[in-house]
Design a protein around this nucleic acid. Structure first.
Lengths: 157, 157
DNA sequence: GTTCCTTATATAAGTTGCTTATGCAGATGC
DNA sequence: GCATCTGCATAAGCAACTTATATAAGGAAC
């Protein structure tokens, strides 16, 4: 508690408020009608592949916090459904690069469309005075996500 | 990085950006070391009970988007672990009200503490110019969560 | 290049958490 | 008072995870 902090105490309170607000928000945001019998983790993998390009199985396992065999099994299933492809990694012949297919990308984009529709309905009920600060916070929120990835990189080394 | 001039329909673009930003944010936010063999849905139920008070099994099932037997089984397990209690509903003797115990609440608060620690580390790396807009957006974000609950109420009737 | 350790993936077997189907008891409507 | 609905429990099956282990390629050391 007496550890030196780069921020005065008021910031601490705000972080706590940010946390609980985001806990609520996250729960609302995740809750979506189940799509095509795909599990939560599966959808997250598709999202990762769509957003960050082809990945190794081990990278996916680490990112999703599940075991490597779980990813192997999931990718096998997704492959049979035509949502991803396994391709050899030219730089390492033990490894596999999982690529998303157009059909897989369509699922990710469909879900995003659902969320956009949902948020459009909600934000449409905000006054301009409420809406403006959310838009203003977007770059900083993206920066937080970026910092999180950096932090994880640092911890891995 | 060059933003177009603010136009009347600029909100549409912002909602899409908000959606993708929150998709990323959500994935970062959820990823937490596994606590005490409790599943994602289980933790969500504990969070609901801690935040909104005692609930019926059917209400929990609806809120978590899982089947009623799934909640019955989960609550039975949580009861044996001392994290929740089943009490009769005085207004309906078929029904059960699930109450969270102090031990259950401790788990929810522990996870919040972990998230606060994580976000404290991240936000500590932000400049004050980046941090301020996030704090400024908090009331509006809470308002969005509130609107979501209203909307769900309306749809239920 | 041979040996040894590490890394990337696959397979096997078991466990857990969900599902649908069904039953029962109390509430509700006429 | 009877029929129907609602809230919960139980049973059986399935899907998605787990740990343990196997296989094969990469990399370092000598």
């Amino acid at each position: 508690m007496t550890e030196p902090r780069p921020r005065p105490q008021a910031g601490e309170v705000s972080v706590a408020e940010l946390t609980s607000t985001l806990e609520e928000f996250t729960r609302m945001f995740i809750r979506l009608p189940k799509v095509q019998r795909l599990s939560f983790t599966t959808l997250s993998v598709l999202h990762t592949l769509a957003g960050r390009g082809p990945q190794r199985l081990t990278a996916l396992a680490a990112g999703e916090q599940v075991s490597q065999p779980a990813i192997t099994q999931m990718v096998t299933k997704l492959q049979h459904e035509g949502l991803v492809e396994r391709r050899p990694d030219p730089s390492d012949s033990r490894a596999v690069l999982v690529h998303i297919t157009p059909a897989g990308r369509a699922i990710v984009e469909g879900r995003r469309a659902d969320r956009i529709a949902h948020l459009t309905e909600l934000t449409g009920r905000l006054t301009p005075e409420e809406w403006a600060p959310i838009v203003a916070a977007l770059p900083a929120l993206r920066r937080l996500v970026e910092l999180d990835r950096q932090l994880e990189q640092e911890k891995r080394s």
